[in-house]
Design a protein around this nucleic acid. Structure first.
Length: 312
RNA sequence: CGCGGGGUGGAGCAGUCCGGUAGCUCGCAAGGCUCAUAACCUUGAGGUCCCGGGUUCAAAUCCCGGCCCCGCAA
């Protein structure tokens, strides 16, 4: 075994925090952590620390949270940590060349897809939207072009038929953590030969925006159902009913036949809450009206005066 | 002090603006109908209307304070 590396970890949300915890249990030394600045969030707009910051502080590790990654003082501090490698997991910023080249071993990134497929900010939702049966995790070296660097290791993960963004994330995070440790060990041992990505196979998974959750009833029921899963828990799929926001937490395709106009309620009784789409009928199985709890369709129908023929 | 909605029998809701014997859809119990049923009919049990003050002859409803939940936003 060679000497432990000095590692700087950059990341922000919960999956990154879990990966950091795994890294802390490994043989290498995390000498510093970089995360997004604390921001007001949640009801009441309280300032909230990122999950990664919390893990770092709990372990007594120095934390930097620069507003700008090009801030000279930040770069100087980073340099003073003298990392052998920088590990990046969902940090949330594009890194400048000065950081990519700062450590001798460069930046090691954990990406939640089988690159070159699904490059970009939201590989998990897009894999579900597209109905993939297999996705996975890739470790690679960061280069200036987004998620286009040479691949170190990959591992496949099968998607369940009812996979949601939340459940897939839960599957991928431990795989990614394990793959990261394996990658670092492999690099130290000189056992990994980076493999260039096939640019012709590249596809992109752009950032999901709140607005993307709005249901377009012209789409086929099967597509809407996948979007419901892909956007769970965020931003979730939603529509409007009686002028109010109605979130759809769970849905299923009950028919592929055309019936009624897109968005029309074609059934609202003990048998279910069904909506016509551009192709087929979608059953809304679990919904949530604004200001209210999420409810199974049967519960929702007890209190809501909703009838066939209404349009969403 | 970011904006807003809500807490009503076991569940989901209406009623609150315009105080005056607590209602709807279900569930539950008993009986009936039926070959049968998650169907249908009849009857019934079950509520401190979140908590604490105040106003009033009278408060779920108005006023003040508190606790909890939720949507937006981030």
């Amino acid at each position: 075994m060679s000497d432990p590396w000095r590692i700087v970890f950059m990341g922000t949300p919960a999956p990154a925090a879990a990966t950091l915890e795994a890294l802390l249990e490994g043989p290498d030394r995390v000498v510093g952590v970089v995360t997004q600045p604390d921001r007001p969030a949640g009801r009441g707009q309280q300032t909230v620390k990122s999950p990664v910051r919390r893990v770092a502080e709990a372990n007594g590790i120095a934390v930097l949270a620069p507003e700008k990654t090009r801030d000279p003082a930040f770069l100087q501090a980073l340099t003073s940590w003298a990392p052998d490698a920088i590990v990046v997991v969902a940090y949330g910023r594009i890194l400048p060349r000065s950081i990519l080249e700062l450590a001798p071993q460069g930046c090691i990134n954990v990406h939640y897809s089988l690159l070159p497929k699904y490059r970009g900010a939201a590989p998990i939702p897009w894999a579900i939207i597209n109905g993939e049966e297999v996705s996975g995790v890739t470790t690679m070296r960061l280069v200036e072009k987004m998620d286009a660097g040479p691949i170190y290791l990959q591992e496949e993960v099968a998607l369940a038929k009812d996979e949601t963004a939340a459940s897939l994330t839960q599957k991928l995070v431990p795989v990614g953590a394990r793959l990261l440790l394996k990658t670092i060990a492999g690099l130290k041992a000189g056992e990994i030969s980076p493999r260039a990505q096939d640019e012709d196979q590249a596809s992109y998974a752009p950032l999901i925006k709140k607005e993307d959750g709005r249901v377009n009833w012209q789409e086929p029921a099967s597509v809407i159902e996948r979007r419901v899963r892909a956007f769970s828990p965020w931003p979730s799929c939603y529509t409007r009913w009686n002028g109010k926001l109605l979130k759809i937490h769970k849905a299923s395709v009950v028919s592929t036949e055309r019936r009624g106009a897109p968005g029309e309620i074609v059934r609202a009784d003990r048998g279910g809450l069904w909506v016509a789409t551009g192709e087929g009928v979608l059953s809304l199985d679990e919904v949530q009206l604004e200001n209210r709890d999420r409810l199974l369709a049967a519960e929702f129908l007890k209190g809501a005066r909703i009838d066939r023929g209404q349009r969403l």
